[in-house]
Write a protein that binds this DNA or RNA. Sequence first.
DNA 1: TAATATATGTTGTTAAAACAACATTGTTAG
DNA 2: CTAACAATGTTGTTTTAACAACATATATTA
Lengths: 228, 228
Amino acid sequence: MIYFKADYMQKSALFQGLEKEELETVRSSIVPIVKTYEKNEIILRQGDVVKYVGILLDGRVSGLKYHYDGSVQILKFLNPLDTIGLESAFSSFHTSPYMFIADKHCSILCIMYAELFTSQGGSISCKLKLLKNVVNILSDENIRLMYKIDTLSKRTLRDRILTYLSIIREKRGSDRFDIGMTQEQFALYLCVNRSALSSELNKMRKEGLIDFDKSIYTLKLRFGLPKE
Amino acid sequence: MIYFKADYMQKSALFQGLEKEELETVRSSIVPIVKTYEKNEIILRQGDVVKYVGILLDGRVSGLKYHYDGSVQILKFLNPLDTIGLESAFSSFHTSPYMFIADKHCSILCIMYAELFTSQGGSISCKLKLLKNVVNILSDENIRLMYKIDTLSKRTLRDRILTYLSIIREKRGSDRFDIGMTQEQFALYLCVNRSALSSELNKMRKEGLIDFDKSIYTLKLRFGLPKE
DNA sequence: TAATATATGTTGTTAAAACAACATTGTTAG
DNA sequence: CTAACAATGTTGTTTTAACAACATATATTA
């Protein structure tokens, strides 16, 4: 309860744009629960029925996908104020398409999503705002997924790397940025072999295309990707 | 105008659930335009600002993506009553992430999406219904994109093929289904070389894993994908 | 139905990444 | 500070798909 502070919640994509009074009404018609997770603890499993929308208050969460053959794919990272499981809550299956794992100690505010919209309480204009926020979150998610598809559609390792880094550069508006992943995680995200990634990155560094240190990368290419 | 028939429109994902009177109200507060396109005509270009939401009345549309190097990716096919450009209309950029091309002669009902929600007219409950429909459409789009990512995340051609076919089988609930693509289009979708796809498909047929004729495929594997 | 275009199949060669195995560096906790 | 672990770098071998070039089959239409 203590975590449901209006001024903080207003910063989350789910509640942004709501007036303090509206947030109060929402708060009074739901029963928010704060759950905490230790590092590496599983928050949601693939296929789990999702009845709660989560808002990450603190920590970091990875969204992973496990395949039949044991391979793993990294889909996204969540940071404070991001929502968890929204896309599942509104999908026709109501089940989680990926597994969520706590990267470090996390606290998550959980809201039964049914309460959000079926609750008589809140004004209808408040519901409208909430729904529009959901639409925006889903649109953003869509864009993120399309970026990933753009990356994976590239055949060569180098193209995948450059495509991914270009997208991040565009997002951040800077040639130097933190991708927030170790090489190992980066390899999972790109769906490539870890050691192959390492050697390609070093090759590209030698050629002066990029530079990197830990998870901080510098993209030196100026005008799009190289023509073949 | 003639195309805006309530009983037909109610079948579209955007308008489903609306009562006839509600649809009437919507219709009266918007100016729907029907545009027609010849085969191979461009409907939207990448980066175009999207002000209209389209509903495909007749024909078939491909959603493609062109890359800097000239390569093309197939993202989706649209069939009658599918919406066009909805995901762009609600994204923060309001621009189309892909190019839409008419696969054959098409007619499309275009609605300025601003009119849909800013129009004073319609009851607010009608707006709520519309927004919920948008949420559902975006959720479905999300799932489609995740399927594609699942497919592309596979390293080998065979795994990509099997992943894709398994997803379609699940969707259709049958081992035999029409994927609605030529091998050439299938290769674009899978982001692989056309002739490599052809030879892998034939290899798999010889091994009894699948069968296919034109765009109709039979998946003979029963229990998931083969363990390595 | 012949002629053309489009789609699919086949082969050999080349390029690229996976993979395994190990070396090196960096980080963390007792 | 050092042992243990985690992350990154490096090499050689094997697997796989791209690619080019051509053959065959299937549609389309004049």
